[in-house]
Design a protein around this nucleic acid. Structure first.
Lengths: 412, 412
DNA sequence: CTTTTTTGTTGGAAGTCTAAACATACTATC
DNA sequence: GATAGTATGTTTAGACTTCCAACAAAAAAG
């Protein structure tokens, strides 16, 4: 039951119906390909005639291509399979992290081309931009694409570790890189003239990657939350199949909802944020038996000893490591319970290095979730792990570029 | 950028455009009446011809009526004003509270008819239902409406103090009334045969009242939060002009997000929930210098001494009362900051008895919000008071009945 | 009274979806 | 191998929309 905003609505025109059905067909081809016109008519419960017309338009625009004929073991004419014409363009995804930057090249529906490469992250904005230029051109050459990205590149999507405003393209604050109010998109647009640049933070980007993933299993439900546990805690909230971004493009900062307002100091300056309990640094600090304070610069041992090392120690039988992980697990679950109580999502996805230890921590997480959720049903909310090998941040970066072509038209 | 759910979408048919424009016109008449066809064509940036056709349909359905002619001080033919035909039917809103139940009768766009009446709330479900029958018939008689509500009543909307599942019509848990798993709608449908009954909790209902309020000022922005502070704390979240309800129809329980996981015990059984810090009972307990524990039955003094009394004491110079209020104010602000960080809404509305003391507590609330929000912009998020005289709960109850006629059609 | 301006209506053009008939291509079977 | 049967994809006519321009109606200004 959505209210129509009387100050900002979209009226229906002659072409509105066509536009809607066109996007539905694109979506169905994307999620069901290979698929025939007849299949589409059944999925949409409409007649084949209309499908033919719309598909012909998509073929003419080269958004869709016809492939081999299907070979069904039934009588009748063989269907001609349709595919998204993903060779039409390509997209570049970048995952900027404090230590290294990861990069992926994909076709126009986000399917990976070549290997994921990484290179050191430059802390100076100017150097950062020029090194990106070098690396992108190198990667394109390797996969045999035109090295001038302006040509057929649909866009560059960048996931940035910190607070960003995607509309203005400004990095508001990225403590790990020491950036404040850097107009990143402006600089990048000069470097890659004509190529659209998109910016997003990690939690929201991860949520995007799940919305737009082509795996069928995840595309059935419309309300979900992605929690990315890493150096910081990023959260992306999906409502009605749409990522919520908020008035200032900063929605999703559940990482700074407190567990205890008098708790340990957080990098944001406040006390007792969820992030201060479950970020990788918090877990490490717990292991080293020091006071957890994310405000101070990271002590030397946490630079050499990573969360992965800690997980390995725990697996090796180090009880101190296991205790540190278990504490994190409990706090993770308590925070998840808050999110579940607040939003009642269909499922929660969790990403980040901590997922490598999921087999060790799952019971504690679930117990804590059950403990603080208000109803039994809420306590049973599906919690899924998104392992690092799926590269949710990179896929989210790519989705910033590839998704708009498939998005529902705004109407009413 | 909304994803189309490939398992659950709505294709566009021949009539889709018409349906969309029809709802837009209804919305515009509702928010701008009196309004002429020519006005509508300008607001929608379309030609008058189309408006005429659609309006004629609405006139034939008696959803809209023509009124007096406008008398503009300009040349040209005078416009015929259009109005929502609000005399077509009527709606009944009920606000059930632990002590008394409040009732309002409205026309079909939610404009109040007659006075708001109240009567004692029966704790036994059967008595509750039959007393509702008596009271509703009495109220209808008084305002001169047909006393058999099945006739032209569009529906009955009920706001219930507790956890409800509006889809199944079950009161899951209402500690204040001692109800658990009561199938309220089933019982009421027997009493009021043929009349649609709607159930909702208080926080979400208040949010509805703001979405569907006909006041123009609030209808400009699409993302907001309503926080209702009373015996409990209810929250309704609006995203894209739509109340989010969640998978199990329980979304919005920010009241049980903790401020400190080791804090005072809450009525939900957990510790340190926001509700345990800011509910009326929490404020009263603080005043009486007792440990705040909402788990135990309310002590005698809080039954005789209400939050309104406390506010009056504070106004009268009682420093203990003022201190109690100030503590509540600070915790209120800290919790609001969490919501603002998490959702970045355009504005936050606050309702409940505590709003009577807004002039006393506003500075502390705003300071606490600024203290824990992540950016300056978030700290400046508009916070508005919805005074008790606006009866947000009752208006929300009514909106459950009246809003669907104006809602945007679901498409794609 | 005539001109100007605004409102509301009408008829047809253009663009949708829809339903039915039709052509095409393949399998199964005699 | 011919024929019947079946599924796919296309064409054509119909119904329903928005869109555009012209037109009638009504009121104020000159």
């Amino acid at each position: 039951m959505r209210n129509i905003n009387p100050k900002n609505f979209t009226k229906a025109t002659r072409g509105t119906s066509r536009e809607i059905n066109r996007q539905i067909i694109l979506t169905l081809i994307r999620t069901h390909q290979p698929v025939s016109r007849a299949d589409l008519s059944r999925l949409m419960e409409t007649n084949r005639a209309n499908i033919t017309l719309l598909v012909n338009e998509l073929l003419a625009e080269k958004l869709v291509r016809e492939g081999a004929q299907g070979n069904l073991r039934v009588r009748g004419r063989k269907p001609t399979f349709l595919y998204i014409n993903s060779e039409k363009g390509f997209a570049i995804g970048l995952d900027v992290r404090a230590s290294r930057t990861f990069m992926m090249v994909t076709d126009s529906i986000g399917k990976q081309i070549g290997h994921i490469v990484s290179f050191p992250t430059r802390f100076d904005p100017r150097e950062f931009v020029s090194s990106l230029g070098v690396q992108i051109r190198k990667a394109l050459q390797e996969v045999g694409l035109p090295s001038s990205p302006a040509s057929s590149c649909d866009g560059i999507g960048i996931v940035f570790p910190g607070m960003v405003d995607r509309e203005s393209g400004i990095v508001i604050n990225a403590p790990k890189l020491g950036w404040k109010q850097v107009h990143l998109i402006e600089m990048l647009e000069k470097e890659f003239e004509g190529t659209p640049i998109h910016l997003e933070n990690s939690g929201r980007a991860c949520a995007l990657s799940q919305i737009w993933s082509s795996r069928r299993d995840s595309s059935g439900q419309n309300d979900s939350v992605f929690v990315s546990v890493s150096d910081g805690v990023g959260v992306g909230v999906v409502v009605n199949g749409e990522l919520i971004r908020g008035k200032h493009n900063t929605a999703g900062e559940f990482g700074h909802v407190p567990l205890s307002i008098d708790g340990p100091e957080c990098s944001c300056g406040a006390h007792g944020c969820w992030e201060a309990y479950i970020s990788n640094l918090a877990t490490l600090s717990r292991y080293f038996g020091r006071n957890i304070s994310l405000r101070e610069p990271a002590p030397i041992e946490t630079l050499e000893f990573t969360i992965e090392d800690l997980i390995n120690k725990a697996r090796g039988g180090d009880s101190k490591a296991l205790t540190a992980l278990n504490s994190t697990a409990r706090y993770l679950g308590l925070g998840l319970a808050s999110i579940i109580n607040a939003l009642d999502p269909s499922f929660v996805d969790i990403g980040g290095e901590i997922t490598e230890a999921w087999d060790l921590i799952e019971p504690q997480v679930r117990e804590a979730v059950k403990e603080r959720t208000l109803t039994k049903e809420l306590g049973k909310t599906t919690i899924r792990i998104v392992p690092a090998v799926e590269h949710p941040r990179l896929r989210g970066a790519v989705a910033l570029v590839t998704a708009p072509a498939f998005a529902a038209p705004t109407v009413a």
